[in-house]
Computed example of a mutant assay.
Amino acid sequence: MVPVNAADYGVPQIRNRIVLVAFRADIPVDIAAFEKYVNTPQFSDTALWRSMLDEDGPYWRRHSDVSARARERARAWARAKLPKPTKEEDPKIKPWRTLRDAIQGYGTDAELPALPPVDLSRLDEKFDFGKEIGVVDHIGWPGARIYQGHTPNELDKPAKTVKAGVHGVPGGESVVLLPATRTARHRMDGRIITAI
């Protein structure tokens, strides 16, 4: 039994799970090598934070279109979250992928096309906004909202775990905070929200 977080394996989503792995007794498996591979981080939150700290760091070179204000807010978050290093992290460990990375198609083996921008005038209707580029089932959910216990996704962090199935009007996992530069519609705490 191994506890895993999908973000540690390059998935742009916080998804903590326990994985049960079993091998047939007649198959010669090097259990120690398997455990070492599973327990060796490939992506980390620390690497993400470090890539954000410098205004011209690798994260911001990928996302050069981000406003200075949004960039500084994300950098302040990174500075506040960066743990005191107990040892030097392996430079081969890659940064967690963020929601912004996923939306822009960054970080996959075969770079995917960026998702089209969401038309904020259509927030009150349910529509598949990826069809025009051949990406299906990215459907907006009208009525998705932020409320106590249901915090939104933020662009510069991995996405929250999205529930499967229909559970009524979705909460924070179906909401993304957008920079406050686009429109005054759907304002909460000075920032824009939109259903994804």
Results as ranks from 00 to 15, higher is better:
K87P: 07
K126E: 12
H150M: 12
Y106K: 15
V38N: 04
V166I: 01
A6T: 02
T86M: 08
R73P: 01
A6I: 03
G143Q: 11
V118E: 08
S51Q: 00
A22G: 12
P179R: 08
G149N: 05
R75Q: 14
L53N: 06
R15H: 14
G149V: 15
K81W: 07
A80S: 15
W141R: 08
A80H: 11
T40G: 00
P142Y: 15
P116Y: 14
R17C: 15
H186E: 11
V175C: 05
T161A: 03
R191Y: 11
G107D: 10
L112E: 11
H167G: 00
G10A: 04
T151N: 03
G140Y: 02
R187D: 14
L120W: 12
I133N: 11
M1C: 12
A159D: 01
R61I: 13
Y59L: 13
Y106C: 10
W141D: 05
V11R: 07
N153M: 03
D189F: 14
G107S: 11
M188A: 14
G190P: 04
I103Y: 05
K126Y: 00
I93H: 01
R50S: 09
D54T: 04
A33F: 02
G190H: 08
T98Q: 00
T161L: 03
H138R: 09
V118R: 05
M188G: 10
E132N: 14
T40A: 05
P83K: 07
P179C: 10
V176K: 04
T86H: 08
T194N: 12
T46Q: 15
M1E: 11
V176G: 05
N16H: 04
T46D: 15
Y106G: 11
E132W: 12
A102N: 03
I103L: 00
D54M: 08
D137T: 05
